[in-house]
Computed example of a mutant assay.
Amino acid sequence: MVKVIRVHRAGGPEVLQLEDIELPPPGPGEVQLRHSAIGVNYIDIYRRTGAYPVEYPFIPGHEGAGEVIAVGKGVEDFEPGDRAAYVGPLGAYSEARNIAASALVHLPKRLSYADGATMMLKGLTAQYLLRRTFRVKKGHRILVHAGAGGVGRLLCQWGSALGAKVIATVGSEEKARIARDAGAKHVILYRTENFPERVREITKGRLCDVVYDGVGADTFPASLDCLAPFGLFVSYGSASGPVGAFDLGLLAQKGSLFATRPSLFTHIADRETYEEMTSDVERALERGHIDFEVAANYPLAEAAKVHEALEARKTAGSIVLIP
């Protein structure tokens, strides 16, 4: 028997129930992984509330790290005792799980399990945003919404290391300090400041090449007013609610802009790309361009408490559950 967090219906944090389940041996092509750390991400809230459809009951969580304790038939790249991390299908909020070996990557000994549990979804998201969706280079001006959040902080760090001028929006003075420490040259308190006006002031009217928006409804369509002609609006999350349907003519009116809504899981569907992206994240970590500082860790049993804080946007940085 293993302890898991299971959800039987859509709802608030109270639907996260600690239960015991029987874990069968791994099937063909699968690995049984004992979690040492589990990453918490905003997508977990989307799953819990039903914003992203799921079949019930389900075990939340897409990201974790731990030790391989058994392998199924046909698995050649992993063996018991290996350290591994992943971003993959639901099931991470658990003491142990079975998962396809193709979803795992080897976790180097120089990285902690907490690193592994936060570097995959958040790190790979930052990677595809900065290196694949829009290839940030020296001299670019980028706007990062929620610059103190798990992904936002990485975007500030990595974007700055790539030579970009990083502008971040945050909701409090405490989060402003986090974003500045992460490399944001300018920080805007979006609850008390008009962020498009501040962006125009900061850039002396030149505006930004790209906007990375994980907030959603609260920052759209104002984000479009922060972009220079031919700039790119990247929506990668909806912490305040999704961006609704809008008139495409807005993109023409505001400077022949581009807009995209990418997904990490599309990028990592190809195994070779998945490994290349992971290696890029590891290199950035080794070079000191980013770090995976864990802001807080909680016992697995307190998952509901974590969701409450995350949904209220009271957290900063990465959060890890410990089985």
Rank of each mutant, 00 (worst) to 15 (best):
A245H: 08
A126M: 09
Y86D: 04
I202N: 04
L23S: 08
K137P: 01
R283Q: 13
R97I: 03
R131L: 14
M277V: 04
V4W: 00
R97W: 00
Q127W: 14
P28N: 12
K314T: 02
G244N: 13
D20M: 04
E76C: 06
E95C: 03
L162V: 12
P221G: 11
G249E: 13
A85T: 08
G64F: 02
H186W: 13
A228K: 15
I38Q: 02
A10D: 09
E276I: 09
V40T: 05
A176N: 06
K175N: 07
G147R: 15
L300T: 08
E19I: 06
R191G: 02
E272M: 12
D280N: 12
A126Q: 09
K73T: 13
E272W: 09
L257V: 02
L90C: 04
V15Q: 08
G11L: 05
A184C: 11
P229I: 10
P299Q: 11
Q32P: 00
Y190G: 02
T278C: 13
R198W: 03
L285S: 11
L264A: 11
M119L: 15
C226V: 03
A228S: 14
I268G: 04
I290V: 15
V54H: 01
P196K: 15
E282M: 15
R206V: 08
F233R: 08
E275D: 12
G116W: 03
M277A: 15
P57A: 01
D247I: 00
V166Q: 14
Y128T: 03
G152K: 12
V166N: 11
G11C: 08
A217D: 14
V210M: 10
M120T: 15
Q127N: 15
N41L: 03
